[in-house]
Computed example of a mutant assay.
Amino acid sequence: MLESIIIWLVVGGLAGWLASLVVRGGGSGILVNIVVGIVGAVIAGLLFGAGINDAITINTFVYSVLGAIILLAVLHLINRGRLAR
């Protein structure tokens, strides 16, 4: 159980960090990266049928990063629309 939580935190942090590099060009801090990566994994699970689980594979990691990129892109569009008003 503890190992699974550690896996979620590490992979979530890496996925969030990579996604923030792609979308914004820089990291947002370790805690935000972890949250974005984990939520990205959930989004990937809903969209692609994959996400973070007890066994990390290249596919699940890539899907987690893609989900995090989607999340950050949507948030970026929402914030841009809010600032344009």
Results as ranks from 00 to 15, higher is better:
47 L>T: 13
10 V>E: 08
29 G>Y: 14
38 I>Y: 02
63 Y>P: 06
38 I>H: 00
56 I>Y: 00
58 I>N: 10
39 V>S: 13
64 S>K: 02
28 S>R: 12
19 A>S: 06
2 L>F: 11
15 A>P: 11
63 Y>I: 11
21 L>F: 12
39 V>E: 12
24 R>V: 08
8 W>K: 11
46 L>F: 12
73 A>K: 06
20 S>C: 07
75 L>N: 09
48 F>L: 10
82 R>V: 09
25 G>H: 13
43 I>C: 01
62 V>H: 06
49 G>K: 14
46 L>R: 08
69 I>N: 00
63 Y>C: 15
34 I>M: 11
49 G>I: 11
47 L>N: 03
81 G>D: 14
38 I>F: 02
84 A>M: 05
61 F>K: 03
72 L>Q: 02
7 I>G: 10
24 R>Y: 12
63 Y>H: 10
57 T>G: 10
65 V>G: 08
29 G>I: 08
29 G>R: 11
36 V>A: 06
66 L>I: 12
75 L>D: 01
10 V>R: 06
3 E>W: 04
14 L>H: 07
84 A>G: 06
56 I>Q: 01
51 G>L: 04
52 I>E: 00
15 A>F: 04
60 T>S: 13
16 G>F: 05
66 L>W: 03
60 T>W: 01
13 G>C: 05
67 G>F: 01
40 G>K: 01
82 R>Y: 08
22 V>R: 04
25 G>R: 04
16 G>Q: 02
28 S>F: 12
80 R>L: 05
5 I>M: 09
83 L>K: 15
64 S>R: 04
54 D>F: 06
27 G>A: 15
